[in-house]
Amino acid sequence: MTILVTGATANIGRMVVDQLLARGATDVRALTINPGKAALPDGVQVAKGHLGRPESLAAAFEGVDRMYLAPSPGTVGEVLAAARAAGVRHVVDLSGEPESWWGSVCNAVEGSGLDWTHLWPADFMENTLTWSQQIRESGVIREPNPDTASAPIAMNDIAAVAATALLTDGHVGRAHALAGPEILTRADLVAHLADALDRDITFRTSTRAETITALEPAMGDNTTWYVDNVLLDFAPPPQSLPTTSVEDITGHPATTFGHWARANAARFLAD
């Protein structure tokens, strides 16, 4: 049974490869646009191609039974049609609720005729890395809503769920809402980072314009969209948010933000 991991050199896709290998998978194929620079583990088949160019995927799909699908809203329909034609049976996709900005991926997967498992993640803990420059330069994080709360999840926990869904039964036709083990405000996240980095970091409530200016060096052209659609138009999660989902599926507790921050402290301080 060959398992194809798309986006295999991106953050989550690369972790999916590692999680599959850690669980004993021996027939893993990794899709990447540049095999020569992929630096994937020994034993992993490397296929050249890109989800944005469905015509490049024929060789990658050959002999594949299951696949992890990284989000590619613009071409997802063509990718899934090619996968089905090649004999792929089961897709584990990273997407979001039908009404979310990744909902088009979810809807396309359900309409493809393939068996499916959706992974619907909460905020990524790694998104706080957009604060790195502010932490290094001023120790002040500028955002509009200190009390906005969520249950952020580590990307590696998402990858662990993806690998579990690819290798074990009982996940077909299920949408796994994935969240971390605790609900934290934006100010809570800053406090955890201050503790992990052992330095003073404060949260300063800022206007939309101030927030865009502060984040733009790190986020570039995506900054305005992120501020308007995530920071200013964020719906707090309900109290029923399934913060035990990672442990329920994988058998291992989800990573706490405090643990993740300590493990990744050097990433916030590196230029």
Rank of each mutant, 00 (worst) to 15 (best):
S95M: 11
S104W: 10
R84Q: 11
V79G: 00
A108L: 06
E97D: 15
S95W: 02
R84V: 07
A81V: 11
C106I: 09
R84D: 11
R89N: 11
E97C: 12
R89Q: 15
W102A: 12
A82M: 15
V91Q: 00
A108N: 07
A108D: 04
P98D: 02
L80F: 09
R89C: 08
D93P: 07
C106T: 15
W101F: 15
G113R: 04
E97N: 14
S100F: 06
S112T: 07
A81W: 11
D115L: 12
T117G: 01
A108K: 04
V79P: 01
R89G: 10
E110M: 14
G103C: 08
D115K: 12
E99N: 14
S112V: 07
S95I: 05
G96K: 02
H90Q: 09
L94R: 00
A83D: 01
V109Y: 03
S95H: 09
V88M: 06
V91N: 00
A85C: 10
D93F: 07
A85F: 09
S100P: 05
V88L: 06
L119I: 06
V79H: 04
W102I: 09
G113V: 05
L119D: 03
T117I: 05
W102K: 14
L94Y: 03
E97F: 15
A82Q: 15
H118C: 04
D115A: 15
R89P: 11
A81F: 10
H90P: 09
A81M: 13
A86V: 10
W102H: 15
V109W: 00
S95R: 08
V79M: 07
G111S: 13
E110F: 11
W116A: 01
E99T: 15
T117P: 02
E99R: 12
A85R: 12
V88R: 07
H90S: 09
L94C: 06
V109S: 02
S100D: 08
L119G: 04
V88A: 04
G96I: 01
A85W: 09
V91T: 01
V79Q: 03
W116L: 06
S100T: 12
V109I: 04
